[in-house]
Design a protein around this nucleic acid. Structure first.
Length: 245
DNA sequence: AATTTGCCCAACCGCGGCAGT
DNA sequence: GACTGCCGCGGTTGGGCAAAT
């Protein structure tokens, strides 16, 4: 037989994460590290599947993440890496410390792609659109490049090989810091994580996990204790809690 | 001021590769 | 070697928000 399923389909919460869930997950992972995603939700006292926890952690909660929009240099680097790697977002993200594949993918789809198209560059091949079998409505050259793209005209130097001038291109737009980056103090959770209180708070508080606020509202779900006790199902004893000290 | 429209991004879904049994 | 499950990845969705009307 194979392994046990990663999560029970029943009773697994979906949708947006609450601050309380974030706190539990961060507490757990910072205290014990990432060992086995399947086990994390139960050990952390969360009604989520391991996959969801991993995603939340890697895309949002990791302390080493940069917050806010990609700057010009990063954007240029993404374009360059994409021209060589294609849609391998995880590989691209590896070249931008502190950025996630999801973030880069989103930024690409919402910003960069449109910019390139407006500039007459195919966002897939990175070739000028006029070199290809262009749709009739697609101009070879941007007829009226929007003013807000002027800054990119000289910057987006689609590379055929090697990293293009990301560094120098970034300097040309320093006067316009797109948007203020989200500061940690703006985000209650990140503020909490970075605070001394958080570090002092790193306790193995399983009792907290058993009091799910939603359970109080819904007696049918008030099986948190059973849920937590269920940990034995995948064998806490077998699970080498040596990684959890 | 109320409603509509469009954009952005966090999160979910499904698949492929790898590893355990 | 076959089967089963986990992990990681890329694609997609939908809710929230701001701008436009």
């Amino acid at each position: 037989m194979g392994r046990q399923p990663c999560c029970d389909k029943l009773g697994v919460k979906k949708g947006p994460w609450t601050a309380e869930e974030d706190k539990k997950l961060v507490n757990f992972l910072l205290a014990h590290g990432q060992c086995c995603w399947r086990a994390v939700p139960k050990l952390a006292g969360l009604r989520r599947c391991g996959k969801s926890c991993r995603l939340r952690w890697t895309n949002y909660l990791r302390p080493d993440l940069k917050r806010g929009l990609l700057n010009e240099a990063e954007e240029q680097l993404v374009i360059d890496l994409h021209s060589r790697l294609g849609n391998r977002w995880s590989k691209i993200a590896a070249g931008l410390p502190g950025r996630t594949d999801n973030e880069i993918k989103n930024h690409w789809n919402t910003h960069i792609k449109k910019k390139l198209i407006k500039m007459g560059i195919d966002p897939i091949t990175h070739e000028p659109l006029c070199k290809q079998a262009t749709p009739p409505e697609m101009p070879c050259k941007p007829n009226n490049p929007p003013a807000d793209l002027d800054m990119n005209q000289q910057n987006v130097n689609i590379p055929e090989h090697g990293i293009s001038s990301a560094a120098e291109s970034s300097s040309s737009n320093e006067s316009q810091p797109l948007e203020p980056n989200l500061k940690s103090e703006d985000d209650p959770l990140m503020s909490y994580i970075l605070s001394d209180t958080f570090l002092e708070d790193l306790t193995w508080d399983f009792s907290a996990s058993s009091e799910d606020s939603s359970a109080a509202d819904n007696p049918a779900e008030d099986n948190s204790l059973a849920w937590f006790l269920d940990c034995k199902d995948f064998g806490v004893e077998d699970f080498e809690l040596g990684c959890i000290n």
